[in-house]
């Protein structure tokens, strides 16, 4: 098998242009033969390893909370620069408080779940281990043990889009608390409505929520259903959302039923619904609207 590319032969040289640019660290063997003779090795070519100085780091690992539910569904890792798709699988792992790797706890990749910029990687925990009654859950137990800690480790060997490793390994450790197996109920949120235009709207959720989904699915609209301009912010525990409207309006909060908490429970349904519990029955509404 020969490498794809094209040859240009001149009087005193033969020039090979590979079809794909040569990857750092790749070794090639050039073989040739005289007419009627056997193939023999003419030269070896080694493409140098990249000498680019690495500057890519892990900026944050979510969830940012101190304590995660034992049925935690996902982590998200935010990088400072785009990462090479496909190199995450071997470099992301979960360890417990003794440093032991929690084998089989993460959903096998590929596919790897990257955002458009390849700077945010979503890592799912193995749902079969989380879901009660499934054989992996029954035999291997849930991936996280309540009362212990869990650490997501991103090894430095993960390569950025330029092929360089990270500056250093990154870790995030959380305590493991009780599992959460109920629907998010926005009507139980504590909402402090602004009493004058300079005050923020402050919403305290009934539990820590998924940060990206809060940003996507919790919206402030005016009475006419139009988006209200303003600045929103979430605390580290993703339990308190503060929104400062730019203009004085009668505000309403629209919560999309697809909003999820850290364990994948949404407003619509429990991740792991108990068919015998009436309160686990889902709701059909597309959103829940909170008004003053």
């Amino acid at each position: 098998m020969t490498t794809a590319g094209s040859w240009e032969i001149s009087e005193d040289a033969a020039r090979f242009t590979p079809r794909f640019a040569a990857a750092p660290g790749t070794r090639y063997v050039v073989i040739g033969r005289e007419p009627g003779q056997a193939w023999r090795e003419v030269a070896r070519v080694a493409v140098p390893e990249s000498d680019r100085v690495s500057s890519t780091i892990v900026e944050t690992i979510e969830p940012s909370v101190n304590s995660v539910p034992a049925n935690l569904l996902r982590f998200a890792v935010n990088f400072s620069a785009p990462i090479e798709e496909g190199s995450a699988t071997a470099h992301v792992r979960l360890v417990d408080e003794t440093g032991a790797i929690l084998a089989g706890a993460l959903l096998e990749m590929p596919p790897e779940l990257w955002d458009r910029d390849r700077r945010r990687l979503t890592v799912l925990l193995e749902p079969g281990r989380i879901k009660r009654g499934l054989r992996p859950n029954a035999e291997a137990g849930p991936p996280l043990r309540e009362g212990g800690t869990v650490t997501l480790v991103v090894a430095a060997g993960i390569r950025d889009a330029e092929g360089s490793p990270l500056v250093s390994e990154a870790r995030r450790t959380c305590r493991v608390g009780a599992p959460i197996r109920s629907r998010i109920d926005p009507t139980k949120w504590d909402v402090r409505w602004p009493s004058n235009p300079s005050e923020p709207l402050v919403v305290s959720f009934d539990r820590p929520l998924d940060r990206a989904l809060v940003q996507r699915y919790v919206r402030v609209l005016d009475r006419g259903g139009n988006p209200v301009a303003g600045q929103g912010s979430l605390d580290n525990e993703v339990q308190r959302w503060t929104f400062t409207p730019a203009v004085a309006e009668e505000l309403t909060i629209h919560v999309d039923a697809r909003l999820e908490d850290l364990a994948g429970n949404s407003v619509r349904r429990v991740f792991d619904r108990d068919l015998h519990l009436a309160e686990d029955d889902g709701i059909n509404a597309a959103e829940v609207v909170l008004t003053r």
Partner: peptide, 21 residues
């Protein structure tokens, strides 16, 4: 999925019934 780093990318390889790639 071929290569790594800046040179990484997809490729489609055709394998003929004669075994040629």
């Amino acid at each position: 999925a071929r290569g790594r780093g800046a040179e990484a990318g997809p490729a489609i390889v055709r394998v003929g019934t004669d075994g040629s790639l």
